[in-house]
Design a protein around this nucleic acid. Sequence first.
DNA 1: GCCCTCATAATATGATCAGATTCTCGGAGG
DNA 2: CCTCCGAGAATCTGATCATATTATGAGGGC
Lengths: 212, 212
Amino acid sequence: MKLPAHELVYRKIRDKVLFGDLSPGQAVTIQGLAEEIGVSMTPVREAIRRLTAAGALEFMGNRRVTVPQMDENSFAELVFAREAVEPQLARQACMRVNSQVISQLRAIDQEVNQAIEAGDVPEYMYQNYRFHFMLYRHADSAILEPMAQTLWLRYGPLYRIICGKWGTANMVDLHAETVSALEKGDAEATAKAILLDVQQGFEIIRNSFQWS
Amino acid sequence: MKLPAHELVYRKIRDKVLFGDLSPGQAVTIQGLAEEIGVSMTPVREAIRRLTAAGALEFMGNRRVTVPQMDENSFAELVFAREAVEPQLARQACMRVNSQVISQLRAIDQEVNQAIEAGDVPEYMYQNYRFHFMLYRHADSAILEPMAQTLWLRYGPLYRIICGKWGTANMVDLHAETVSALEKGDAEATAKAILLDVQQGFEIIRNSFQWS
DNA sequence: GCCCTCATAATATGATCAGATTCTCGGAGG
DNA sequence: CCTCCGAGAATCTGATCATATTATGAGGGC
């Protein structure tokens, strides 16, 4: 079970983006990352290529690689895409999950709530991610699930800024709705619950972010 | 205007996938491609990483890289995603195109028609691609347009099989509808025209493909 | 005399390669 | 049917070359 170095590097950098360790506009260098992680440049280069292909990173000019800045247009597109993709994933997942998965989801939801109460932003973001993709994984989807992944990669850095500014105080947890829809096996209700979750997350950002 | 080798390699392989030079299930090796193109393995490795991240290629086990096979589920998701993304791109593009772009599109549409009449499948696929992405480029989209790219990468090999089997005989050209909607500046009509185009393409595949 | 500008040098970073090493697959032999 | 090689492919490194960015300093204008 030994994963290749480029895969480990990829996951490490991806998580940095996903959970907001890197903020929009921040530049990274291949050599810098190579030194930091303790590998040669080649595996880092490959990880960077994958991440730029996924939109998690962006080439600026011909030398610098940065976390993409998001403007109002891109933000609107991100909303549009997540609202299209994620409810559909939830719909498909609902038809496939068993009761064991549902209890796992409920357990993760507990973690989310605890993180909110504790005001632990990184933990909240991590557990929230876990909840969504634990669900989406069971959609058994080769197309939509990777799309959702790339959308979250764009969403992460932005969301991190908001959470850092406001804390977890005004985070409302809409996962209970989702879990109860799953228990009933109601695919449409599940899709609707996820749609609301997505919309609510974006409301928070929209209201508390001034687009320079 | 000298592009790096890994970029050239990426484009070369991407076009192979996009226009069906590689068929689903076909395996490629890094060394093989490196030798074929005449570069070292490193740039090829980077190109492969990008393409796998985009879903154009797929790791089978830990050794072989192949063009993904598509089953009925994935196909349905591909339909769903294209129907969501591409009309929206068309909608946004409609609000930004000028008359010069419209004439370019009309010119490309001529090429498409000629390719259909000539029964030239590769040319048809190439010009059809050009038409769509010439339009989408003007949507000025950082999120949706790359998504459409990856969807076409999955669509290409499949479409190529169909075209190879039936020729261009039953290809209906719905681009004229799109162009005329653009001329009127009617964003909704443009979106609808593209939606029909997408649906019609999928009808052909759905009807003429038995899912083993 | 001071500050700005532009050319040039120094440094950092990226791109590519060839080779050493590790790993996987497939077949031969038990 | 399982285990153990061997061929070939992939991975990773360090070196080398190319190029972008930054630092430096001379010259000219205010």
